[in-house]
């Protein structure tokens, strides 16, 4: 057990050195959400009418946080595919190191990246007038939920990198996930504005439940209608779906980590 902890910290140190040397990754996960905050939340603010005359900037900030997390799908998918391609996965696998620490380090470093990205997006939002209307603890709880979502998305990125291999395919997939994840959820629009048949998917998406719960924690407008559990108890629904998906995706990734490297020749 202690060797697994040492391995994880060692690999995490490697990923954090990468992050320090490639600030582009931070730009990659921060640029789209910050642009959304500035363009949609600020410039188009008056053009968007929210139910109950709620302020759109206040509504969308939790969604922008989730979008930073969505960007981590791409960063982890790309870095896993890159390690596979350049033979580092083979090297790690030829050492007496377990599989999970290698992958866990990737997702943990994504959390660090996301933390900085959310702070940046939050600072921009704050400058433009967004406010948290509750206290310190609910504010932190909101960020913690967003980080839990990021952790899940990053594991899905690991899985995608292991399945897809090809760098260009991974890039396209990451772009697709960012757009679909952002807009097939309540991140930037109230669920009621989505086509009816998509409603259940969007409602139960952990992105929607996390964003809704975060809005409640921050005292920002929620703008949800409906009586499904995902809407009435978003925090519980979010934690349950995230836990369920993590339990599914981690062992699957660990398994694929072996076979992906076998197939890379």
């Amino acid at each position: 057990m202690t060797t697994a902890v040492v391995d994880t910290l060692t690999m995490l140190d490697r990923k954090l050195r990468h992050l320090r040397r490639a600030p582009g990754e931070l730009l990659g996960v921060t640029l789209t959400p910050v642009t959304m905050v500035v363009v949609v939340g600020y410039l188009l603010n008056k053009a968007i009418t929210m139910p109950g005359n709620a302020n759109y900037l206040d509504f969308m900030m939790a969604g922008a946080g989730a979008q930073v997390g969505l960007g981590c799908f791409g960063t982890s998918a790309i870095s896993v595919a890159d390690d596979l391609r350049n033979g580092l996965v083979d090297r790690f696998r030829s050492l007496p190191v377990h599989r999970i620490p290698v992958l866990l380090a990737q997702t943990l470093s994504d959390l660090a990246l996301t933390g900085v990205g959310m702070a940046l997006a939050g600072a921009v939002g704050w400058l433009l007038g967004w406010r948290i209307h509750t206290g310190l603890l609910p504010a932190l709880a909101g960020f913690a939920l967003l980080l839990a979502l990021t952790f899940l998305l990053s594991w899905f990125g690991v899985l995608a990198g292991l399945v897809v291999h090809s760098m260009s395919a991974v890039n396209s997939l990451s772009g697709l996930v960012l757009v679909v994840g952002s807009f097939l959820s309540s991140a930037f629009v109230p669920l009621s504005s989505l086509p009816g048949w998509l409603r259940p998917v969007a409602e139960w998406s952990p992105i929607s439940t996390v964003v809704t719960a975060t809005r409640q924690l921050w005292g920002n407008p929620v703008a949800n209608t409906g009586d499904s559990l995902a809407i009435t108890h978003p925090a519980a629904a979010a934690l349950a779906t995230i836990a369920f998906l993590i339990i599914a995706v981690v062992p699957l990734s660990a398994r694929l980590y072996r076979t992906a490297s076998e197939k890379s020749r």
Binding site: R17, H18, N86, G87, L88, R91, S94
Partner: peptide
């Protein structure tokens, strides 16, 4: 007990 050097240099270019 083993060391492996593959067909291409598997070093981390960002370290």
């Amino acid at each position: 007990h083993i060391g492996l050097a593959g067909q291409y240099a598997a070093v981390d270019g960002q370290l």
